[in-house]
Design a protein around this nucleic acid. Sequence first.
DNA 1: CGGAATGTTGAACCGTTTCAAACGGAGTGG
DNA 2: CCACTCCGTTTGAAACGGTTCAACATTCCG
Lengths: 251, 251
Amino acid sequence: MIDAKVSPLAGMATKFALQASLTLSDQAALLALPHATRFFEAGSYMMREGDTPAYFGTIVSGIVCGHKTSGDGQRQMTSLHNPEDLFGIHTLYLESLDHNVQSLTRSEVVTIPLTALRDLAKNSAAIACAIASIVMVDISASRAWLLNISRRDARARVAHLLCELAVRLDRPGQAAEVTYDLPITQEQMADAVGLTSVHINRTLKYLSLSGLVHHSKSGVVIPNWNNLVDFADFNSRYLHIKGNVSPLSRN
Amino acid sequence: MIDAKVSPLAGMATKFALQASLTLSDQAALLALPHATRFFEAGSYMMREGDTPAYFGTIVSGIVCGHKTSGDGQRQMTSLHNPEDLFGIHTLYLESLDHNVQSLTRSEVVTIPLTALRDLAKNSAAIACAIASIVMVDISASRAWLLNISRRDARARVAHLLCELAVRLDRPGQAAEVTYDLPITQEQMADAVGLTSVHINRTLKYLSLSGLVHHSKSGVVIPNWNNLVDFADFNSRYLHIKGNVSPLSRN
DNA sequence: CGGAATGTTGAACCGTTTCAAACGGAGTGG
DNA sequence: CCACTCCGTTTGAAACGGTTCAACATTCCG
């Protein structure tokens, strides 16, 4: 099995292994991928729309987002990546990037050239399947965001986002209260859910006053997980977490 | 090369071949996939959220959509499929469906069991890569919908959708005027772009009055392609059409 | 300590929704 | 062939949710 101590690529290799059954040589090949550790300041671009995709990576620390901007400069995030998440793998076979990737906080990432992964996938059906599988999970999340942004009001919308992050950070499941770090600004949150930072402010105030969630620099506190899930109309199925116990992600 | 006359699967096989270089035996294997021709009445469900994915397919005729619904019954389409498009392939490696697939008009489709494709992908890296590639193109479109719905007003939003469909139906490129069929109701269009059918009505009226697009039972007429593209802030890059001449898709 | 970035609040405004009513066309049955 | 119905379209008026603009408070950071 993959030993998490061995390599900064171990997390990435594990993600692959979760999606398809890999031979030992496939696992070894993944761990042998050329890679570099890089640091990005908050707000710096890791990739830009229109670029030729060059690498993908795993996040070691920090928060990274994918986003697009409209002609008049408005921005919409399309994904949010936490430590241990992969980013950029969607673009493995795209000739040009359709979105930007930017760090929201100072972050450390391990980057891997796409050419190297392409070579691997060309020779291993299992690895290619794992990649396809990873992208399928991501497109499912993308569809969930679409619904969230188009059909839920501001309150449920940010509640839903906070639920998603809780589940992805593996927090719920034990007690009623759920807690995690989320060092992003209200403006960044606005770009994630398609609102204004002013309205995010009012919405967070409402959610806090009604005891559903508290968000501050010290993190997110969800006093009662089930309450928030109900309020947000949240169902974690779309995250396709393997071995997920309850499809409703209520305790 | 793949002969379009041979099999109802030829279109599907060609889509795969466009994304990865397939050996002749890969191509033959794709064409040999078990399949069935099926008809669906307008409005009938081909797959439902929560189901275990069973098949994918190509559309022969008709229009099919993917959609999700929120707890209070509001609906948001996540994709629209025209003849020759694939549907359901996103779910190849998902344990449960995260969205519904429904026909908007009476439609004829060719369905292929996912198990058969999984077997093929397991043994051919090229086919697995083609699948990954197809999904990557789709997730790119999904991101574009996200931006469209969250950050453009109703007018630009429906204009953008009509641009996308024009390009995907391969209409623009020759003359300034662009025409195509789009036998969907205003309510269906509303579900595609995240608006109300009432507001779609007013928006279409505006677009028609200003000479940008006309939509009726007889189809879509775009008197001047470049005008609509500018108005909609449309750039076809996100569709990743191979061999696409102009990334801006202006003539 | 000072300046910039982020958060907070109020008031006016505006795009979209909601509700309600009426209209038109296609299909059906008498 | 007309009357009836159903479904989608059209229009108006009022209400609502979120934006915009502007001012001020707070926190962060060099």
